[in-house]
């Protein structure tokens, strides 16, 4: 489904601030894989997300989605295959537009935006059904501007918006990190349901070790721009936080340093 071959990225090459963000990243995702990504500060997790979604271009290496080379496509063209939820609850929705208008924009992912009405009666009914699945009562506030929703509600809406056109790849960039524990758990639950139901190929960056172990069928750990650990489904089943930390120390020769890490 997603094939990343020998992707590298340098920031500020040739200056005193040169920083290696990714080196020779090799990652293949099978359809319906749900991969969690953990790693220390500056490991390159966000850069990897930005490279896949097209916000940044790799310096070397290739990217394929379902066999199609997408490495040189700009973000807006790539987004027909890729759904993305950002860490910042403000980032995934347009605050001064209504819930239904936001959904209408998401509904047109990858299609030509012409002069058809964004929201009509049939679409409104369909959007309402979708929103009702979130189970947080947003379907009763359809005409409300998204800016009036709480962070958790906005994140749930973002999640629905980025998935309901069945993208080939779903990128979750620490999408529960900015929420309080109860809401984070709710969003995690919704994420799990949606990914399972729609069989989405998913890559999720998280700072929560327990979450990284509990969710998905594969776990990768990154450090200094490399993938240093790749744990498959069978090994992941009996993984614990302690063993994961131990593995990290063994491979990288240091303790996992992340000021935001949550052990679970």
């Amino acid at each position: 489904m997603l094939q990343i071959n020998q992707v590298s990225k340098l920031f500020n090459p040739g200056t005193p601030d040169e920083k290696i963000a990714l080196v020779g990243i090799q990652l293949h995702l099978k359809p319906a894989d749900f991969v969690t990504v953990i790693g220390s500060n500056g490991a390159g997790k966000s850069t990897l997300m930005n490279i896949i979604s097209g916000v940044m271009r790799p310096d070397t290496g290739t990217l394929h989605i379902e066999g199609a080379a997408v490495g040189s496509l700009p973000e807006f063209k790539r987004s027909q295959w890729i759904g993305r939820v950002f860490q910042d609850p403000m980032a995934g929705t347009a605050p001064n537009m209504t819930i239904e208008e936001n959904l209408a924009m998401a509904f047109y992912r990858g299609k030509v935006r012409g002069f058809g009405l964004g929201v009509n009666a049939a679409k409104r009914r369909m959007f309402k059904e979708q929103v009702a699945r979130l189970g947080i009562g947003l379907e009763n506030r359809f005409g409300a501007k998204v800016g009036t929703l709480s962070g958790g509600e906005r994140q749930a809406l973002s999640l629905l918006m980025s998935t309901f056109t069945s993208p080939k790849i779903l990128l979750l960039d620490e999408h529960t990190a900015a929420l309080d524990p109860a809401r984070a758990e709710l969003i995690t639950q919704i994420t799990q349901d949606i990914v399972r139901e729609m069989k989405l190929t998913t890559l999720m960056v998280t700072h929560n070790m327990e979450q990284a172990i509990r969710l998905g069928n594969r776990l990768i750990m990154m450090d200094k721009g490399r993938i240093i650990l790749d744990i498959d489904e069978t090994r992941k089943k009996d993984l614990t936080v302690e063993r994961l930390l131990g593995e990290f120390e063994q491979i990288s020769g240091k303790k996992l340093a992340d000021d935001r890490i949550v052990l679970g």
């Binding site: 063209k77 987004s79 027909q80 993305r84 995934g92 347009a94 992912r109 990858g110 918006m161």
Partner: peptide, 8 residues
């Protein structure tokens, strides 16, 4: 950023 991530 949001509308670009939806392909506009």
């Amino acid at each position: 950023r949001m509308i670009r991530s939806f392909g506009a």
